[in-house]
């Protein structure tokens, strides 16, 4: 109850950015729920793209501009186009998916809820701390600062990522290639 009162008090003297956090957070969670509940897979993909755009807004608010742009390019651009391609390729109909029984669904939701309560009650005791005004660096998320760290401390993982992409590309082509006897979908 005490926590709730301090929450209400802090809610009253927020500026635009503070309200944006709550608004964006709410929209993100609603569209994430509609990803899971949508009957039509295409609606699911569109809701997921919307979720990614909302998360990009969160990254902007946190002053992580580089990752905000990368999130749009990689997730909303490349990955979701791949998903849309696969769904249109496979020509799924809505009635293709017979629902799981209600008991399974309820059990899943209960498991998820219990996990959430468990995690939140653990985090309640975690001293996450807060920002340090004296040593705060507003340029953390900019390309300049990230580039220095990426190309000095993390140069080996960065180069290994290129090998990972090469292997993934070869694997995807090998798996997706039509064998002599395979049907044309």
């Amino acid at each position: 109850m005490n926590q709730f009162n301090t929450f209400l008090a802090s809610f009253k003297n927020l500026t635009t950015a503070g309200y944006l956090f709550y608004g964006l957070g709410l929209i993100t969670l609603i569209s994430a729920i509609s990803v899971v509940t949508a009957k039509n897979p295409i609606h699911s993909v569109l809701a997921l793209i919307f979720t990614f755009f909302c998360l990009t807004g969160h990254y902007m608010l946190l002053n992580a501009q580089f990752l905000a742009i990368v999130n749009i390019i990689v997730y909303a651009g490349a990955i979701m186009v791949l998903f849309l391609f696969a769904i249109m390729f496979l020509n799924l109909k809505e009635e293709d998916e017979e629902a799981k029984t209600n008991v399974t669904k309820m059990a899943a939701v209960i498991v998820g809820g219990v996990l959430m309560v468990l995690l939140l009650s653990i985090f309640n005791y975690a001293p996450v701390g807060t920002y340090n005004p004296a040593s705060f660096d507003a340029k953390t998320g900019l390309v300049e600062r990230l580039g220095i760290v990426l190309y000095s401390d993390y140069i080996l993982p960065f180069e290994l990522a290129s090998i990972l992409f090469l292997v993934a590309m070869v694997g995807a082509v090998m798996l997706g290639k039509r064998e002599a006897g395979d049907p044309h979908f």
Partner: peptide, 18 residues
């Protein structure tokens, strides 16, 4: 947790992926 519930409730492999 929303993601976990999605993995547990859906049967469509693409939606599980999402």
């Amino acid at each position: 947790v929303i993601g976990i519930i999605g993995v547990l409730t859906r049967r469509n492999a693409i939606i599980i992926f999402m």
